[in-house]
Each structure stands twice: as structure tokens, then as C-alpha cells.
């Protein structure tokens, strides 16, 4: 496990050192961005709408019973942008995009395409990992931002239309505006960049270390998704501690 972690950190370091060469790979970055957006936008939309709705449904009646209905906008607003959107979207992207990255690079490894790149003096990290890592680090914060907005909408719709809550739209929005600051949004976006780096690095690392045939590719895909999700959830705790400590 520690060897894997070390290798992943080295891969991340090597990719970061190649960041100045991103412009030369811009076409591949755009292709990856399109791939990520195209594959996940609708899913993020549905997921976020219902998470926001469920959050309102679970907390709304309890708060209203205790005469605290007016703080619902703030609770949903902060929960979505600081925790739920970054984590849920990252988990979704790990399953949807991380698996695809591991499978594609893994199959290139198994079928000697990466060896072919090396014989042409083309560095696999620059050609394969850099565009994917850059694309996911750009796309995930954007998806999280989108998810936050859709999640708030879901919460607002349920709060306004559920008879047990029946919170006026203006009341919901006004509490949300009072409670959520730009720093809270930045908190979630910062987390999403870290999660994106985890997904990209873990998935590309698993792909590059694939051995065997189709079974090896399957193993790499499973490991990429499971390891990404575990690392996201573990790091989320420590990241939250750090962000609370620096008061962000």
C-alpha cells in the first residue's frame, strides 16, 4: 500500500513538473473536458437536485416543529457547498471518469501502445496523464459549482412545496444569502480540486501499472474506483480539519 502511495505521489510530482507543457497538449485537454462534461453533466444534475431535495425533506419538518424553519436555507446552502457537492460529485466522477481513465490507459499498457509511445520518445506521462489530470482538475470544480446551484434549487423546491415545511421562497433565499459566504464556496471548490487530483492520479497510476490481459484491465478499473473513493473520504476528513483550522 505504501509503495502504491509513493508511486502515486511520484506520478503526481512528475505530472506537475510537466504542467508548463500543457499548452502543447491543449487539444487532448479539450477532448478530455468534453468527455468528462458529456459523461457526467446530466448525472450530476439529477444527483444534486435529489440530494438537495432529500436534505430539505429530512431536516425541514424537524426544524419547523422546533420553530427553526427559517434557517433551512442556510443549512442546505452550507451542506451542499462545503460537503455534499464536493464529495458526492467526486465519488460520481471517480466511478464514471476514473474508471474510464484506468480502462483506457490499462488497455494501452496491455496492448503495448505505451511501449510504442516510449520508442517514439513520447513520454507517456506528458501524452496520457497530463491532459487527463489537467482536464479533471478544471472540470470537477465546475461540476461542483453546478451541483451546488442545482442542489440549492432542489432544496428550495422541496421547502416551498412540501406541506410539512411550506417555507416561502424568499425566506429560504434570504437565509441562504445570509449564511453562505464566498469563503464557503471556495472551501468546497478547494476540496474538489484535491479530489480531482486524487481521482486523476489514482486512475492513471492504476492504468499505467496494469499487467495481464482483459482480467488485468478489470482489476485496475476496480482498484482505481475503490482506491479513489476511499482516499477521497479519508482525505475529506483531514482536509475539513485543516480548513476549519485556517477558518475557511
Amino acid at each position: 500500500m505504501f509503495q502504491n502511495l509513493g508511486e502515486m505521489l511520484m506520478l503526481l510530482g512528475r505530472t506537475l513538473r510537466m504542467l508548463p507543457q500543457t499548452w502543447g497538449q491543449r487539444r487532448k485537454v479539450m477532448d478530455q473536458l468534453f468527455e468528462i462534461g458529456n459523461a457526467s453533466l446530466l448525472m450530476v444534475c439529477v444527483l444534486s437536485l435529489f440530494i438537495g431535495g432529500v436534505l430539505a425533506l429530512q431536516t425541514g419538518p424537524v426544524l419547523v416543529d422546533r420553530g427553526l424553519g427559517s434557517v433551512l436555507g442556510g443549512i442546505i446552502g452550507l451542506s451542499m457547498c462545503k460537503e455534499l457537492s464536493p464529495v458526492m460529485v467526486a465519488v460520481l466522477i471517480a466511478g464514471r471518469i476514473g474508471s474510464a481513465m484506468a480502462a483506457e490507459i490499462g488497455s494501452m499498457q496491455v496492448y503495448q501502445e505505451i511501449d510504442a509511445l516510449r520508442t517514439m520518445n513520447i513520454h507517456p506521462v506528458r501524452y496520457l496523464v497530463l491532459p487527463r489530470l489537467v482536464a479533471i482538475c478544471v472540470a470537477l470544480p465546475l461540476l461542483v459549482l453546478f451541483s451546488v446551484l442545482v442542489g440549492w434549487t432542489g432544496g428550495l423546491l422541496v421547502s416551498a412545496n412540501n406541506p410539512e415545511i411550506a417555507l416561502p421562497t424568499e425566506g429560504f433565499l434570504s437565509n441562504l444569502r445570509q449564511s453562505v459566504e464566498i469563503a464557503d464556496l471556495a472551501n468546497g471548490l478547494l476540496k474538489s480540486i484535491v479530489f480531482a487530483a486524487i481521482i486523476g492520479t489514482v486512475s492513471c497510476h492504476q492504468g499505467l501499472h496494469t499487467i495481464g490481459g482483459p482480467r488485468g484491465i478489470g482489476r485496475s478499473v476496480t482498484k482505481a474506483v475503490v482506491n479513489s473513493i476511499v482516499l477521497i473520504l479519508v482525505l475529506d476528513y483531514f482536509l475539513t480539519r485543516v480548513l476549519l483550522y485556517i477558518d475557511l
Partner: peptide
């Protein structure tokens, strides 16, 4: 240069892109 037993052409790009990959990269 090496011609692999499995040819090892990159399956996600066209034949022309494969052949021109070295020059383009």
C-alpha cells in the same frame, strides 16, 4: 523505431494520426 508484433497502433486515433504521431508530438 520498433514495429511491434501486435503492431501497437494507438486504437483511439486514426491511421494517419498514428503515422504522424512522432512528427506532431
Amino acid at each position: 523505431a520498433m514495429v511491434f508484433q501486435s503492431s501497437a497502433l494507438l486504437s483511439s486515433i486514426t491511421v494517419a494520426e498514428n503515422v504522424g504521431l512522432y512528427l506532431a508530438e
